[in-house]
Design a binder for these strands. Structure first.
Length: 299
DNA sequence: TCCTCTCCTTGCTT
DNA sequence: AAAGCAAGGAGAG
């Protein structure tokens, strides 16, 4: 335990952790990277692993985390919130975007390093859906097949084998729709050991991406989301409808395809996943974006 | 091989 | 009320 960690009452622990760089909890939890966080007054409550967390800003630069259930410990919390990294360090190659009105406050958006399986399953559920509905699906799966979390009314996200044995029909009944068979089959594959998360963390980006797209219901976009949000691969840059719109508007590229946009984004460096998340949020909340001064054309 | 089109659930919005 | 839309992917042609 750090000097700032203390036991409050039975089964509850509080950690107070220093934060490097800006942090905006509202942005971080609503931007669509994670689906189990809800606002509770000035704090945010969410499920991480087998823990129920209540997160708030204790004072400037310090994060308070009250834990029920299985305590991840301060080190794991630092990793989950990337508290030791200033998000702005990942945006060094995106100088031209500082000119965009309203972008500076978005640097408080922090990419979370989440569980890879939960991330994969969540984003398989996300195809042609929306953030609220994805949240309901994820919560529904946890309610039905997740393990109990002591001290919390909610449950952990179910392991691959649990969803595999649930089967497509029951997943469909949980609101997964046409994505249910994809998720059931991918769960079976993961439960059978078809994917090694450690190998994906270490592999070259394109290889890791190819391994994921081999799963049913996983195309380039969902593979990139899994790499970015679940495997700490900040060079992943998921291209979805919003990023497509934003990129076409900012750089006036009307005929570019998704693969072109992925390649285009390489210019934003190894931390471009951060930029993707910021552009995603910017485009959704601000509508059409003004064209930037032209620099280079998409190949 | 690559492109384009359609279909696939569901629920909320217009 | 019908149509559009929502962090897409698979399959056909």
């Amino acid at each position: 335990l750090t000097p700032d960690s203390s036991r409050r009452d039975a089964g509850t622990v509080r950690h107070v952790l220093p934060v490097s760089g800006p942090i905006d909890l509202d942005l971080t939890f609503t931007c669509g990277q994670s689906f189990r966080w809800t606002r509770e007054g000035d704090a945010w409550r969410g499920i991480v692993g087998r823990a129920d967390l209540l997160v708030s800003l204790a004072d400037p630069g310090r994060l308070s985390v009250v834990v029920s259930g299985q305590d991840p410990g301060p080190e794991a919390l630092v990793r989950y919130f990337r508290l030791d990294q200033d998000p702005r360090a990942h945006l060094e190659h995106a100088e031209e975007l500082r000119a965009l009105p309203g972008i500076l406050p978005l640097f408080g958006l922090r990419l979370l390093e989440q569980d890879p399986w939960e991330t994969l399953a969540s984003f398989i559920s996300s195809a042609a859906s929306n953030i609220r509905k994805i949240g309901r699906s994820v919560e529904g799966m946890a309610e039905r097949w997740g393990e109990l979390i002591p001290g919390s009314p909610r449950r952990a996200f179910p392991a691959p084998a649990r969803l595999a044995s649930a089967g497509a029909a029951r997943l469909r009944a949980t609101g997964l729709g046409f994505r249910a068979p994809y998720l059931a089959r991918s769960a079976r594959a993961v439960a059978a050991g078809a994917i090694s998360w450690d190998a994906l963390r270490a592999a070259p980006y394109q290889e890791a991406r190819a391994a994921l797209t081999a799963l049913p219901g996983v195309g380039p976009k969902i593979a990139d989301c899994t790499l970015l949000f679940g495997l700490g691969r900040l060079e992943a840059y998921p291209v979805d409808r919003w990023i497509r719109r934003a990129t076409l508007e900012l750089w006036s590229r009307r005929r570019a395809k998704d693969a072109d946009l992925s390649r285009w984004a390489e210019r934003f460096g190894p931390g471009r996943g951060y930029l993707q998340q910021i552009l995603f949020h910017l485009r959704r909340t601000q509508g059409p974006l003004p064209p930037l001064p032209r620099v280079k054309r998409i190949a």
